[in-house]
Design a protein around this nucleic acid. Structure first.
Length: 145
DNA sequence: GCCAACGTTGGC
DNA sequence: GCCAACGTTGGC
């Protein structure tokens, strides 16, 4: 069971939009980066991820779950290279966990979010994931399922 | 709005 | 296959 982090600019697609999209989830389309695509290819349905607001917000704001495995990205009809998973919003953090806070905490020094700020889909360590959920006020939700 | 970092493209 | 040019991302 791996853990992930997905970035989105909130004015394009916010966590509120993700939650409003419902149980079925939505295609995480538009990723045009091989590294990010390759991570999505390895994702299993049911794996969880952090939802991060870039630019405006700059904070982890919620929890998502992979609801369908990687398949061709419908927004790339002419180019079969690009694939993406489907995501379902699970729960909003009670308190956003800011990038500033993550950067300041030595326990997150190894996070990709810190070392490669441009990668839009990235792996997160189990320890990092749990800790960020706790900071976001979702301790129970994490240990739940 | 600026700029640094990074990834991709395309000429050679 | 190298590398310069360009485009994009995202923090500040």
């Amino acid at each position: 069971m791996a853990f992930w982090l997905f970035k989105s600019e909130p004015f394009k697609w916010s966590f509120a939009d993700q939650m409003a999209a419902g149980e079925a989830g939505t295609e995480w389309s538009g990723v045009r980066n091989y590294q990010a695509r390759n991570f999505m290819r390895t994702m299993q349905v049911g794996e969880r991820g952090l939802f991060y607001h870039s630019n405006e917000g700059k904070a982890v704001v919620g929890l998502v779950e992979v609801s369908a495995p990687a398949a061709h990205d419908s927004t790339s009809p002419d180019d079969p290279r690009w694939e993406c998973v489907h995501l379902r919003g699970l729960q909003a953090f009670l308190r956003p966990v800011a990038l500033e806070e993550i950067k300041a905490d030595p326990r997150f020094a190894a996070m990709v979010l810190v070392s490669n700020s441009r990668l839009s889909v990235q792996p997160v360590g189990a320890g990092e994931f749990t800790l960020i959920c706790e900071l976001g006020g979702l301790r129970e939700a994490v240990t739940g399922t």
